[in-house]
Simulated assay, not measured.
Amino acid sequence: MRVMIAEDSVLLREGLTRLLEDLGTTVTAAVGDAEGLLRAVAAAPPDVCVVDVRLPPTFVDEGVRAALVLRRQWPDVGVLVLSQYVEERYAVDLITGQASRGVGYLLKDRVSDVADFHAALGRVAAGGTALDPEVITQLLVRSRRRDPLERLTRREGEVLRLMAEGRSNAAIAASLVVTERAVEKHVTSIFTKLDLPVAEDDHRRVLAVLRFLDSTDATADRPAAAPDTTRGPHDV
């Protein structure tokens, strides 16, 4: 496993390098800023990058913004973000972006076992995920504060409910007494309103259902919509 490290603290950077090398991992570069990381990756892409959120010169968000650049330009390179805080504004983009494989977000203060950290790094390098439970909790709280389902029409809400039950487009069309083409249009609209980008596989459907399940009123609080009797079988 080939690893690059971007960490402004010399002690932490050198410490991570030594720990990983002692575990048999090859550290191909260890840099102190985001620009250095991007240059190093462009020259020789590794399997995974370990990136601190706050890097020079402003120590605000250079690291996580560099991580997003890595996800866009080198989607085969895993990215494991290390931070003292959950940067909600960028964490959502990092975790749910179009290149949604090979990503991790761990909080520094909660990394207490070297073997666990090395295992998480290996999962990310292999295309898996490694998310701190606190990160997940904060992102769920954020999604509940701003319910994305409020943007859906009543019919789109009905379609999403049936998607959450695992029904195919054909089964949804039969249940709602509309054409399958109409269901496809509603599903596309749902993806757009939930800010789910186009992808080569079906993970958008899964993400849409997850957002439905994570919504505060997706089950008990949101009343079931009555069948729409004002439209015929060609409802779109």
Rank of each mutant, 00 (worst) to 15 (best):
I95Q: 05
R110F: 02
V51W: 10
D228Q: 07
E200W: 11
R155G: 03
Y105S: 03
A218T: 04
V209N: 00
L80F: 04
S9Q: 08
A224S: 13
R142L: 13
D61R: 03
Q84P: 00
A208Q: 01
L55T: 02
A30E: 01
T137G: 08
F117A: 04
K193P: 05
S168T: 14
W74E: 03
H118W: 14
V69Q: 14
T129N: 11
S189Q: 07
R146T: 12
A164I: 05
L80K: 02
P233E: 13
A42H: 11
G63V: 03
L82S: 01
S100Q: 07
A91Y: 07
E87T: 02
D201V: 04
V124I: 10
S175P: 03
A226M: 14
A173L: 12
R110C: 04
A174Q: 15
A173R: 03
I190Q: 04
M4C: 10
L160N: 01
A225C: 11
L68P: 08
A43L: 13
G15T: 00
R211N: 07
F212L: 11
E62Q: 06
I95P: 02
R72G: 07
G166L: 09
A174G: 11
L82G: 02
V183E: 06
F117M: 07
A66V: 06
V64H: 02
G102W: 12
W74N: 01
S189H: 05
R72T: 08
E88N: 09
A125W: 13
D22V: 09
L121N: 03
K108A: 01
D228T: 08
D202F: 10
P75G: 09
A130C: 05
D76K: 14
K108Y: 00
L37H: 07
R144S: 09
A120F: 04
A66L: 08
A119H: 10
A170S: 12
P57C: 06
I95M: 15
R54A: 13
V86T: 03
V41C: 09
G36F: 12
Y85L: 10
F117G: 00
R71M: 12
R65T: 15
T25G: 02
G15L: 04
D93H: 10
S168N: 05
A6D: 07
E88D: 09
V60K: 15
A115I: 02
A30H: 04
Y85V: 09
V183F: 08
R154A: 15
L210F: 10
V27E: 05
V103C: 11
V92A: 11
T230W: 15
K193N: 06
R123Y: 12
L194I: 05
D228I: 10
A171V: 10
F191V: 00
P233S: 08
A99K: 02
D202R: 07
L176W: 11
G232L: 15
S175L: 13
R65N: 14
A126T: 00
A225Y: 13
D113V: 06
A224N: 09
R144A: 14
D217K: 05
S100A: 12
R142F: 14
L20H: 01
Y90P: 05
R181W: 11
R54P: 02
V236Y: 15
P227C: 13
A43D: 13
G232I: 07
V51P: 06
A218Y: 14
D8A: 02
A164F: 14
D61I: 01
M4N: 00
Y105P: 06
P57Y: 02
T137N: 14
V177K: 13
V92F: 12
G166M: 09
A29Y: 06
D33A: 10
A218D: 07
A120I: 05
T129S: 12
L131M: 13
R54W: 01
